[in-house]
Design a protein around this nucleic acid. Structure first.
Lengths: 332, 332
DNA sequence: CTGAAAGCGCTTACAG
DNA sequence: CTGAAAGCGCTTACAG
């Protein structure tokens, strides 16, 4: 069998308590004793059993993260940033995906209520909120990412969706574009409702009322951006610009518009949302509202770790500022 | 405190052993007893402590996955696929990133040798191979993804990089393109050496020897694809096609070529590698060698879970076939 | 079909 | 500064 704390204690001629103290740097101990114990630990190649430690300590030093999918461009960024913070703090990160509906949620809830994790990060809790709420009420620290307001009882980290969309409106207004085609996401997401409202407000502040017929709902995919643009063209809608609720849909829309012989930005100016790396890689490069995605992941992870350590998380939602990146798709 | 197996046993008037049997469906037991126990479990809202179970059982039902970064397009796909398989089997997935060099590896090795996980999936073990080997020798089941041959002692899942590159060569040959610019990845990766070799072989089989001056090393980023194309143009190299070792570099190269007034595919035909969703979204859409990325993640996860369950993994590397997707970047 | 008891490998008051 | 002992909450031979 593998070497345990008992073997180390025996060989070093001390008690398991002392070995444990050396391991955890707790309590005063004779430096020479500690030295001797360390030597034995090295000699034996002893590594404490994570499972035993977790059990005895009542905490696994593992946090969980529930994500809709890891294969979406922006979730990858958020998770990566959060994992880095967790690892930095000596925590592991257990990922759960909610792609498989009911059943994956059941399994997830099992893991979690079984105390396999010390805290939970959640991206877009759409459809999982009941489960999350139950866990939270049960004492599990939870931090939501990108879902401000929809559930004010949870600590959360989001971004200024509303102001970001307003900035997009001002930018297009400054270019004299009064008929933007809005390619939105699904309105069940709080961030989408914010973006719709902010965009309207931006135009309203200049006395321009938007044509409600120019709002098309997408689903964040490239294809839905294509479809939205294609339908708008077919329907003969008049629009001089596009505001898409993410970069990917903006790219899809641009491909269709260009394919239809329209010039970007001369005929149609296009603005995206997120400002992922791909925004710089479209043709033409995409003007976009910039979300501080990595910062959101890092901040959420830090809040959660603090909560695990006993620091109650802030009462109001943390809202990180968006910025605005101008590229050729509006500024040709 | 939260309810334990003891509470359930007491309330149901049975022993903890019996409750445990009901929980795990082990051993014969009177159906009425089991029913009664289940009722108490429901009544009390009992959920077994994952930490205690892991400790007693000697396994956490958690596998680990070491990835270079979660923010790269193709790693997201692989991890997502592997997580789905793990969850399906009731396992959790602990992710480790190797982005922070030495230190993250130390932390990683700590977690792992501490038996926090039952098995390990590794993507591109570049630079981490020593640590992995030690763990493997220590008895930890390990499956490598996408690193055939570099370390034949490990079970692995990869793809036909060599044949895929050869197919690219044949395709370009059939188009009469004899001077391809090759934008490779870093040759320390086994898959890259395979792609280089396969591409040469494809041309050699038609009696065409490639100009070694037409191979440029990239690093998988869009920017390196741009740089490669820009340098080739500046240097006045003659080339009638591009074979990039991933889609992202192909996209970068195409942007530069188009910017220089070259027509794709008329002046330069372009082939990528991976065939990620983005391949269909470039301008023009990209012809690419298709890697079965999801299948790779699923297969690796299944092999690992089988190994955790005691089934020794296959001795030879599992190599999944690539296919070839023709789009406008070569077939205009 | 069921239970008493040992054991998994640590941590942590408590005592000295 | 150090140790004996209890305890964390399960699982699993072993016995009946």
């Amino acid at each position: 069998m593998s070497v345990t704390i008992r073997d180390v204690a025996l060989r070093a001629g001390v008690s398991k308590t002392t070995v444990s103290r050396v391991l955890n740097g707790r309590g005063e101990l004779d430096e020479r004793t500690a030295e001797r114990v360390r030597a034995v630990i090295d000699e034996l190649g002893y590594v404490p059993s994570a499972r035993a430690v977790a059990f005895a300590r009542g905490s696994a030093r593992v946090i969980g993260m529930l994500v809709p999918s890891l294969a979406w461009p922006w979730t990858g960024e958020v998770v990566q940033a959060a994992v880095e913070v967790a690892e930095e703090a000596g925590y592991g990160m257990l990922v759960f995906t909610a792609t498989q509906g009911e059943q994956s949620m059941r399994r997830f809830a099992g893991h979690v209520s079984a105390k396999a994790i010390d805290g939970l990060l959640v991206i877009e809790p759409d459809g999982t909120l009941d489960a999350i709420t139950a866990l939270h009420d049960d004492g599990l620290p939870v931090v939501l990412i990108d879902d401000r307001g929809s559930e004010p009882r949870f600590p959360s980290v989001s971004t200024t969706n509303r102001l970001g969309a307003r900035a997009a409106a001002h930018h297009l207004l400054a270019l004299g574009r009064h008929r933007p085609l809005v390619v939105s996401g699904e309105p069940r997401f709080g961030c989408i409702r914010e973006r719709l409202a902010g965009f309207d407000e931006g135009y309203a502040s200049a006395g321009v009322t938007l044509d409600p017929g120019l709002v098309v709902e997408g689903d964040f995919t490239y294809e839905s951006g294509q479809t939205a643009a294609a339908r708008a063209l077919e329907a003969g809608l008049r629009f001089d610009s596009v505001f898409a609720h993410n970069d990917v849909m903006a790219a899809g829309a641009m491909a269709v518009l260009r394919g239809a012989g329209l010039r970007i930005p001369e005929d149609v100016a296009v603005v995206g949302f997120d400002d992922l790396p791909l925004a710089a890689q479209t043709d033409p490069p995409l003007t976009a509202v910039h979300q501080p995605i990595r910062e959101m992941g890092q901040t959420a992870a830090r809040m959660l770790l603090a909560a695990c350590a006993g620091t109650p998380p802030p009462d109001e939602a943390i809202v990180l500022p968006t910025s605005f990146t101008v590229r050729t798709s509006t500024a040709g």
